[in-house]
Design a binder for these strands. Structure first.
Lengths: 276, 276
DNA sequence: GCATGATGTCCGTTGAACGGACTCCTTCCT
DNA sequence: AGGAAGGAGTCCGTTCAACGGACATCATGC
């Protein structure tokens, strides 16, 4: 990805290349930076950007640089796996945070990674890499393991094919070891991860299911205490509470938005063989 | 239909017309619905949608309809007035919620309206119209009055020109009355609104300022008690706490500007000599 | 059965997008 | 101060990607 010499063929792909240039590490970009990242001519990028700004997908800062626009944020709140899930989960997450005083995270499966939808951080808790809107690897995080354990074999194969990156000495980087961990996760209902993402970080996660029993999200607690397993009951309690909230259908906007939570989780990988 | 402005001329405008068809009231649309709303030919809409789905801006539901994609939500979190502001405000909002047990809302100015960035709802509190990602009128809501009171005259003129819609018998619908209310808001530092949006709803709001003293957001409490003014001290306390948090931004290289919106401008080295 | 309407695909035409070239403007170096 | 370098913004002729009419397919309903 992020191939600067990539030739975008369609107009929309170019527009999205511009939007995709913005990352948590670089949330603010100048025209020249966007040109370098996307490989677009500056005349083309300039024209696209002007349209994006006009629509609200981008905003100009006082410096003359660009940031993602509020209109895009507003649209993003319409995703059923984002805000609606978050709203239902928040009370339980707050309870869990009050009890544990540790980081509490809610993540969903997206594109072969775990996307952090919500997070409550403890002021005195350990620093962790993830943040809301950020992504975690499926094989080395507790929420990731939970999501991967309940996904189809195709996703597992894709994760293995992409390589099990090593982050610490404890990271599980072999397929067999990962299979064991996922089986254990399915058996116990929780995933316990010890220093696989970063040293000194222990986490436990549990799945969130919708009305049909499908796993739609993962809930985790991350803290510095090696005895993290003591928090398993609290995490499971919170997870079951959230899941129960998803089975009932008391939506402020009516309709059965629980069904919306299904969302296809299949990988959008290019499928090297068949192809189109 | 009834949309004579359907003549999108550019490709991006058509793509955004598709995305803009999704609203909180209609977060899930079929191809045919999108065609009717946007006025696009179904062949055109179909091609655009396929690209949007491929990029993650849209997702297909199990029913074959479409919803806004998580990729768009992820991008939206990069907006400096969205997530970063929210993260800093949340602890104070939770405190305010704990003290008042009422709805607590955080909103920013966007396109002549107040956009609700975050909200904590009380389980037993009165129902209100707004929600996260939703919009409130500037002239009839407490957060709106706060934002409007500290905006330039041009915005005020625009709001008046668009018409001061009446929602209840108490709604201020004349320019003179609104000017008085805004002046009072500037003088006291808070806006108190009584049943102007909906009957039985009383609210008080206070401005949130950045490091340069500019008003960047509004914080409000909404409840059923006519004696809402008793909550003024608590709201002001929370607002000042949030504002203080925005001044202490660890800005790189002075951060004389744009510190209000962006946490960190980028990873460029300060005063870099020789370029990269 | 036929009618209706939605989704998905193909392909010839055309007009919108591309990008080279140009003009400011700011910044940095000598 | 003068000049070089690079970023931002604009113009316009060429061309290729987008448009949309037409067709195929699959549900649903009378």
């Amino acid at each position: 990805m992020a191939n600067s010499t990539e030739r975008g063929r369609t107009v929309t792909s170019r527009a999205f290349a511009v939007l995709g240039a913005f990352t948590p590490a670089q949330p603010e970009l100048t025209l020249a930076q966007i040109c370098r990242i996307t490989g677009l001519r500056h005349a083309t990028a300039h024209r696209l950007i002007r349209e994006l700004v006009g629509w609200g997908a981008l905003e100009r800062t006082s410096r003359g640089a660009y940031v993602i626009g509020l209109r895009l944020w507003e649209l993003g709140t319409l995703n059923p796996r984002g805000l609606p899930l978050r709203v239902r989960a928040m009370p339980f997450m707050e309870d869990l945070h009050a009890v544990t005083r540790q980081h509490v995270q809610l993540a969903v499966l997206d594109g072969g990674e775990a996307l952090v939808v919500e997070r409550i951080s403890a002021a005195d808790a350990i620093p962790v890499v993830s943040q809301v809107g950020g992504r975690l690897p499926l094989h080395a995080s507790a929420v990731g393991k939970v999501l991967l354990a309940h996904a189809d074999e195709e996703l597992f194969a894709g994760v293995v094919r992409d390589g099990l990156a090593r982050f610490t000495a404890s990271t599980v980087t072999d397929e067999a070891g990962l299979r064991v961990a996922l089986a254990e996760c399915r058996r116990t209902g929780v995933a316990v991860v010890r220093e696989e993402m970063s040293a000194g970080a222990y986490s436990v996660a549990t799945p969130i299911t919708d009305a049909k029993g499908r796993v739609v999200a993962g809930l985790s607690v991350v803290g510095p205490d090696p005895a993290i397993h003591r928090l398993v009951p609290a995490v499971v309690m919170a997870g079951r509470g959230i899941s129960r909230g998803l089975t009932s259908v008391p939506g402020p906007a009516g309709g059965d938005d629980a069904a919306l939570l299904c969302g296809r989780s299949s990988t959008r990988e290019p499928a090297g063989a068949g192809g189109e």
